[in-house]
């Protein structure tokens, strides 16, 4: 069974360059009147990529889809959350995901994404605190040493 929504793991596996090229080619060929699915395909391919600018472009395309087609908004919320999660924009990702969870509390994928975001935030936050703390300690140590050195003089 293919789940109707991708899990976070899916977004981490980049497409092959030629696959992405196919999607891009199709997207560009359809020009101004690009079909919804084509646009999404390209956007999703971009988000799966490893390149940050491409991921950003993908998220931008998704937000365009969200604006233009209201009947796809609900699932787009999830894709946006996932894209922002991959970009590391956890605040945005959480915002979208929470909206989705408000609408569909039973959504498995959204639930797992929420956990993932929390986890990431906690980890990186701790790391940040650790870094800041470490820096502060080091500064303190250095400062005190300097201070002590000055005092000793």
């Amino acid at each position: 069974m293919t789940p109707s929504l991708p899990y976070a793991a899916d977004v981490e596996s980049p497409l092959k360059p030629d696959e992405l090229d196919v999607l891009r080619h199709q997207y560009e060929r359809e020009g101004e009147y690009v079909g919804l699915q084509t646009k999404f395909n390209y956007a999703w391919g971009l988000i799966k990529s490893n390149q940050r600018p491409e991921q950003q472009e993908g998220v931008r395309l998704l937000s365009e889809i969200f604006r233009s087609s209201s009947e796809r908004r609900r699932e787009c919320l999830y894709y946006l959350a996932l894209g922002n999660y991959k970009l590391g924009n956890y605040a945005e990702a959480r915002r979208y995901n929470d909206f989705l969870l408000d609408l569909e509390p039973a959504n498995l994928q959204a639930g797992s994404l929420k956990e993932l975001i929390d986890e990431k935030v906690a980890k990186e936050g701790l790391m940040g605190v650790a870094i800041v703390g470490g820096l502060a300690v080091a500064a303190g140590v250095v400062g005190s040493m300097l201070f002590r050195g000055v005092r000793r003089r």
């Binding site: 109707s4 999404f40 931008r60 937000s63 604006r67 796809r72 609900r74 699932e75 945005e92 609408l103």
Partner: peptide
């Protein structure tokens, strides 16, 4: 990028029920 990609809250509140036969991801 964020300014381009972020969505205002009005839009986010205006989410209709979807009755699509398949999700975009399945289409992908």
């Amino acid at each position: 990028h964020r300014a381009l990609a972020s969505l205002p809250d009005e839009l986010l509140h205006n989410i209709p029920e979807d009755n699509n036969q398949y999700s975009l991801f399945q289409g992908f």
